[in-house]
Amino acid sequence: HMTFVALYDYVASGETDLSFKKGERLQIVNNTEGDWALAHSLTTGRTGYIPSNYVAPSD
Rank of each mutant, 00 (worst) to 15 (best):
Q27M: 13
E24V: 00
D17P: 03
K21C: 11
H1T: 12
D17L: 10
W36H: 06
N31F: 15
A37D: 03
A6S: 05
L38R: 03
G23C: 07
D59C: 14
G45V: 01
A37I: 15
N53M: 11
N53W: 14
P51S: 02
G23L: 02
M2K: 12
T3M: 11
Y10E: 00
G14T: 10
Q27A: 08
W36R: 09
D59H: 12
T32C: 13
D59F: 12
A6C: 09
Y49N: 04
A39K: 00
E24G: 02
L42W: 06
A37T: 13
P51T: 02
F4W: 14
A39E: 01
G34V: 06
L18K: 02
A56L: 10
W36V: 06
P57E: 09
S41A: 03
Y10Q: 01
Q27S: 08
I50N: 00
T3H: 10
S41V: 02
D59I: 13
V5G: 01
T3D: 07
V55N: 05
T47R: 07
N31W: 15
S19C: 05
S52A: 12
T47W: 13
D59S: 12
T32S: 11
H40Q: 10
P57R: 09
M2R: 12
N30P: 07
N53T: 11
K22Y: 04
P51M: 05
S13N: 10
L7I: 08
V55T: 05
K22T: 06
K22W: 03
V5H: 05
N53C: 12
Y49G: 01
P51Y: 03
N53G: 13
Y54E: 02
E24H: 03
E15H: 11
G48I: 01
E24K: 00
V11F: 10
D59W: 13
A39I: 05
G48E: 02
K22E: 06
Y8I: 06
S52D: 04
L26P: 01
A6L: 05
G48P: 02
G23Q: 01
A56W: 10
S19N: 05
K22D: 02
V29A: 08
I50M: 03
N30Q: 13
S13C: 11
R25H: 13
P51W: 04
T44K: 01
S52H: 09
P57S: 10
T47M: 08
T16K: 13
T43M: 07
S13E: 12
I50W: 00
Y10M: 02
G14K: 15
S52Q: 09
S58A: 14
L42S: 04
S19K: 04
E15Q: 11
V55S: 04
G23D: 05
S19H: 04
S41M: 02
S52Y: 15
M2E: 09
Y10K: 01
I28S: 01
A6G: 04
R25E: 10
D59R: 07
S52P: 10
F20P: 00
I28G: 00
W36K: 07
T43E: 14
T44Q: 05
L18F: 09
S52W: 15
V5E: 06
H40K: 13
N53S: 14
L38T: 03
E33F: 14
F4I: 05
D35F: 12
G23H: 03
P57Y: 11
G14Y: 08
S13V: 15
S41I: 02
L42R: 02
Y54N: 03
V5T: 09
F4H: 07
A37V: 15
R46M: 12
T44N: 05
N31E: 10
V11I: 12
T3K: 04
A6F: 01
A6M: 06
D35A: 13
F4E: 00
D17R: 10
D59T: 11
V5A: 03
Q27Y: 14
R46F: 09
E33Q: 13
F20L: 06
A56V: 14
G48H: 03
Y8M: 10
H40C: 13
T47E: 08
S58K: 07
T3R: 04
T16R: 14
T47K: 07
S58N: 10
P57K: 09
S52C: 15
L38W: 14
Q27K: 10
D35Y: 13
K21I: 08
S41H: 06
A12D: 02
D59P: 13
S58D: 14
S41N: 12
Q27F: 13
R46E: 09
N30W: 13
Y49H: 06
K21Y: 07
T32M: 14
D59A: 11
E24A: 00
M2A: 10
S58I: 15
L26H: 00
I28Y: 05
K22H: 04
Y8A: 08
A56S: 10
P57H: 10
T47V: 10
R25K: 13
S52N: 09
K21Q: 11
F4G: 03
T3A: 07
G23S: 02
T3E: 12
K21E: 08
G34L: 07
A37E: 04
S13A: 12
G23F: 03
N31S: 12
M2L: 11
A12E: 04
V29F: 13
F4R: 03
Y49E: 03
V5F: 07
Y10S: 01
D17H: 14
V5I: 14
V11S: 08
T16L: 14
S19V: 06
P51F: 02
D9I: 03
I28F: 07
K22C: 06
D35T: 11
S58C: 13
R46I: 07
A6K: 00
D35M: 12
I28D: 00
V29W: 13
Q27I: 15
V55A: 07
E15A: 11
D17V: 07
L26D: 00
D9H: 03
F20M: 08
T32Y: 14
D9C: 05
F20K: 00
F20N: 00
Y10I: 02
G14H: 11
T44M: 01
P51A: 02
A39P: 00
P57F: 11
T16Y: 15
P57I: 12
I50D: 01
G34S: 09
T47N: 06
T47S: 09
S41L: 02
F20H: 02
T43I: 08
L7W: 05
T16Q: 13
N31I: 14
K21S: 10
G45K: 05
V5N: 03
S58V: 15
D17Q: 15
F20C: 05
V5K: 03
D35Q: 12
